[in-house]
Simulated assay, not measured.
Amino acid sequence: MKTGLYDFHIAHQAKMVPFAGYSMPLSYGNVGQIVSHNHVRHSVGIFDVGHMVQSNFRGKTATEFLEWLTPSSLASLKPYSSTLSVLLNEQGGIIDDTIVTKHAPDAFYVVTNAGRRDEDLAWFKQKLEEWNVSDNGKAGPVEHEILDNWGLVALQGPEAASYLQSLTSFDLTKLTFGTSAFVPIEGFNLHVARGGYTGEDGFEISIPPSQTVEVTKLLCKPPVQLIGLGARDSLRLEAGMCLYGSDLDETTTPVEAGLSWVIGKERKENGGFIGAEEVLRQLKEGPARRRVGLVIEGAPARHGAIIFSSSGTEQIGTVTSGIPSPTLGKNIAMGYIKTGWHKKGTEVQVEVRKQLRKAVLTPMPFSKPNYWRG
């Protein structure tokens, strides 16, 4: 599959690679990953994230429906505010991670991962059918609209706000991290959410199909640079953010993943969401394993590398993502480790290229976030 910007990428000498069922840019021209990564950390870059699935849920009981599918407190979310959340299966495992934005009590904008498109859409369809024939649904049915072929671009970096401000009369200082608005940008009226996947200040801009290329061209003037998937991965790992399929899957609960904060306070007490029984049990008793950050000596550990005790005798976990960090100049990784070994500062060993290398458990994010909180 292709996003609406495929031809635009080719015209800008993108190296295209398969990712989550789409042909996506890894890098552009002869600009390397580290240069692109550093440009986002120090200036501003733009990413095509149009492969993500954008949806609207509407209906009188939309809040209750989405609070059944996720453990988040959406009833108390203010209009045009967002939260990271998770779709859970009956065992409390993560079907996908998602951003849920409340537009009104009966209207939500939801973004899910491209790599889980088929699973998510089948889950939504199944659960909507169950909901709409129940007493809840009869009181107010919920409908699901998929925004197929819509564009989605992410403008990220410390200069993102000043650049975007030059294109709009809307006061962007009022748009704090985790909020969104419809913003006039050079004659276009676009949904702009303040946030992103890099740890930097930035915006995710949703664009109707007929306007995607034109708006992206508008957003691509210096100092903005086009950034590919290579830098996106290193930026998100420095920011301590999970990649579905590497760091999250259907056998992993939000408690194990260190995402208990997405579970609403009253929901921790009352449940009422799919998978609640196991999630509440783990919140009470503690999970058997936990997601942790690692700094590794000597060489970078990749997905699947085994974590051993400091003596090297006991296998205690697995690395799920790892890179040499361009910002820190160290080898960083995240993974899952047996509870009891998860405290920061704990020394362990990681098998890299058939050799045990010393590693230290380190709090995430590895790189200090620079979100705009007003």
Rank of each mutant, 00 (worst) to 15 (best):
T3C: 01
G4R: 07
D7N: 14
D7K: 04
H9R: 02
H9C: 05
M16D: 06
Y22M: 05
P25V: 04
G29I: 12
H39F: 12
H39I: 03
R41F: 06
S43T: 13
S43F: 11
S43P: 00
S43R: 15
V44F: 06
I46V: 02
I46D: 00
F47R: 02
H51G: 00
H51D: 13
N56M: 13
N56T: 14
F57K: 04
R58I: 09
R58N: 11
T61Y: 08
S72N: 14
A75Q: 15
S76A: 14
K78P: 02
S81C: 13
S82D: 09
L84R: 15
L88F: 08
L88G: 03
N89Q: 10
Q91L: 11
G92L: 02
D96L: 02
V100C: 04
T101C: 14
P105Q: 08
A107V: 10
V110F: 03
A114G: 04
E119Q: 12
L121F: 09
W131E: 10
N132L: 06
N136C: 04
N136R: 11
K138Q: 14
K138Y: 10
K138N: 08
E145D: 14
N149A: 12
L152Y: 08
A160G: 02
A161Y: 09
T173E: 15
L175G: 04
F177C: 00
G178L: 08
S180E: 09
F182T: 13
I185V: 04
G187Y: 11
F188Y: 15
N189A: 11
L190Q: 06
Y197V: 11
G202C: 09
E204W: 06
I205T: 00
S210G: 04
V213Q: 04
V224A: 01
Q225W: 08
I227R: 00
L229R: 05
E238V: 04
A239Q: 08
M241V: 09
C242Y: 10
L248R: 03
L248W: 14
D249G: 03
E250M: 05
T251E: 15
T252V: 15
P254C: 04
A257P: 03
K265E: 12
K268T: 11
N270F: 13
G271L: 10
F273E: 06
G275F: 09
A276P: 01
L280N: 02
R281Y: 09
K284M: 10
G286K: 11
P287C: 05
V292Q: 03
L294R: 03
V295A: 01
G298E: 13
R302V: 13
G304L: 09
F308M: 13
I316R: 04
V319L: 05
G322R: 05
G322E: 12
N331E: 12
I337Q: 02
G340C: 10
G340M: 07
W341T: 04
K343S: 11
K344Q: 14
T346Y: 11
V348E: 12
V352N: 06
V352C: 05
K354Q: 14
R357L: 12
K358T: 14
L361Q: 05
L361P: 01
T362M: 02
M364R: 07
S367I: 14
N370C: 10
N370M: 13
Y371L: 01
W372G: 01
